[in-house]
């Protein structure tokens, strides 16, 4: 095979796309959103679970679930999105569980974070790394 510039570009582009490089993390705004939610309180780990696929077939529609035994509110952030906010779930008196599922948009491979405010006023956090694949032909 002749190794031409054009071939090299084509193959390089293919390799880049396959590697699924992580998106630039907009850490500052995620931290700000968390600080606004917690009022600057310390965040531990514990009574919060975030379920997300390890590999999402398409960043447009990624199913996630948050659940906790005693959460009053749960903030969900997509740390690698241009704006990290996803949703804030507030559970009312008739919530049978402190859990909810939804479908979210992820701009690329990144960490999804859930921060819960528990009944005792403390905050706990869980995160999940989601690889977002860039499709095949796209058609």
């Amino acid at each position: 095979m002749e190794f031409t510039r054009r071939n090299a570009i084509a193959m390089g582009a293919g390799a880049l796309l396959v590697a699924g490089l992580p998106m630039r993390v907009s850490a500052a705004t995620s931290d700000e959103a968390i600080a606004a939610f917690t009022g600057g309180a310390e965040i531990g780990t514990g009574d919060i679970k975030l379920t997300a696929p390890e590999i999402a077939e398409n960043g447009n529609t990624v199913p996630i679930e948050v659940s906790s035994g005693t959460a009053v509110e749960i903030l969900v952030l997509a740390t690698g999105n241009p704006t990290p906010g996803v949703a804030t779930f507030s559970f009312g008196k008739l919530a049978a569980s402190r859990s909810a599922s939804t479908r979210i948009r992820l701009a690329g491979t990144q960490d999804v974070v859930a921060v819960a405010k528990l009944e005792d006023g403390s905050f706990v956090q869980a995160s999940s790394a989601v690889k977002v694949t860039i499709g095949g032909c796209g058609g």
Binding site: N60, T61, V62, A78, N81, T83, P84, G85, V86, A87, T88, F89, S90, F91, G92, K93, L94, A95, A100, T102, R103, I104, R105, L106
Partner: peptide
């Protein structure tokens, strides 16, 4: 009249 869930939604919620 009693709340079950109240969700604040951002643009990252899917179509």
């Amino acid at each position: 009249g009693e709340n079950v869930v109240d969700v604040k939604m951002e643009p990252a919620i899917s179509t």
